[in-house]
Simulated assay, not measured.
Amino acid sequence: MQLSQQARFAASLAALWPEEDRTGPLGLAVSGGPDSLALMLLAHAALPGRIAVVSIDHGLRPEAAGEVALVERLAGERGIPFTALSLTPQPGNLQAQARAGRYAALAGWAQARGLGAVATAHHADDQAETLLMRLNRGSGLAGLAGVRAVSRIAGSQVPLLRPLLSWRKAELEALVAAAGIVAVRDPSNANPDFERAAIRMALAEADWLDPAQLAISAAHIAEAWQAIQWYAECEWEEMVVRDETAPTGLGFAYCANGPRVVAIETIIRIIRELGGHATRAEAARAWDRLWRGENASLGGVLAVPGVEKVEKIGVPMRVWRFRPEPPRGKAN
């Protein structure tokens, strides 16, 4: 491995996970594919003695046990602590279920071992594929922001890092080959029945598209999404108050005069605070109805639009009142 590669990885990791924030070793999710093996090699060089590796058999392919064994051998040769985990396949969308199970297992492993964070090997080509997939679905900004460089594993406080988002897949494959390692290949990655594999094939044929630049665009969108989330937090603090007129004493009044994208996030939070759940698509449809002056119902919550003079502002404003829906057959 070149020193420049080691330094580049260390710099990428430090930007996501500053030294002063590190409370334990870095956990690595390694499948045996070239991307995650490159992550292991880079992290071992940059953080000797401060990493741990896990490999997960999702129970979907008979070859997976051998792939886990390969990772165990490679980790052992380098003195890296290793854990093997097995999952039981769940009914439904195989890839979605495998992903959910994988991250739940990663969180449990990290907490049990006292790890400071977990890193995965998502790279620039993955990010480009994700952006194109979500553009093709008509996703909003939250989806177009792609794979986040820093987040938390769902349902936990475990930091989740993606330090390879500026690296191309070809670079990672070359790094593994230079180490004399033959990586495994998951056949599902070349199966066009899966959306990501189909997008990957189309992207490979479109030589006028630059995956690295697409990944940069996704990073710019992620920054814009962070700004919207910050604005939504301000909106919550400044424009949402408890609705003392609600019959049960449980409700919120929202002075809804900001941008639609911010209002959607605020509506989602109001619904959550009232014990319900709403997707962004549902909140967007509710916003459309409320903006037209129509009632909206979502997540077990009734929203009623109106125009009121807001005391602290002194002028009439749109005020939307949210409260739990009354039982069917009873008046509001």
Results as ranks from 00 to 15, higher is better:
263 A>D: 03
8 R>H: 01
248 T>C: 06
147 V>W: 03
308 E>V: 15
151 S>V: 11
216 I>M: 00
33 G>H: 03
221 I>H: 03
83 T>Q: 09
88 T>V: 15
19 E>A: 15
125 D>I: 14
94 L>P: 14
224 A>C: 12
153 I>A: 06
22 R>N: 03
62 P>L: 12
98 A>Y: 04
171 E>Q: 14
201 M>H: 10
79 G>T: 09
204 A>T: 15
202 A>T: 12
147 V>T: 13
99 R>D: 02
251 G>S: 04
33 G>L: 04
123 H>S: 01
130 T>F: 01
126 D>G: 05
120 T>V: 14
86 S>E: 12
287 W>C: 08
172 L>E: 00
67 E>G: 07
300 G>R: 10
28 L>P: 01
105 A>K: 05
119 A>R: 05
166 S>G: 12
305 P>E: 05
90 Q>W: 07
275 G>S: 12
330 K>W: 04
217 S>C: 12
33 G>Q: 01
265 E>A: 14
138 G>S: 05
86 S>H: 08
174 A>F: 00
219 A>P: 00
271 I>F: 02
316 P>Q: 10
155 G>S: 12
162 R>G: 02
240 V>F: 01
100 A>P: 04
199 I>V: 15
87 L>K: 12
211 P>G: 05
265 E>D: 14
137 R>H: 08
39 L>M: 09
319 V>F: 01
119 A>I: 07
48 P>T: 07
263 A>Y: 01
159 P>W: 03
245 T>M: 06
79 G>V: 12
219 A>K: 08
110 A>F: 03
23 T>G: 13
287 W>L: 06
125 D>C: 12
134 R>L: 13
20 E>Q: 13
21 D>Y: 03
327 P>C: 11
243 D>M: 07
113 R>H: 00
190 A>S: 13
112 A>E: 05
181 I>C: 07
223 E>C: 14
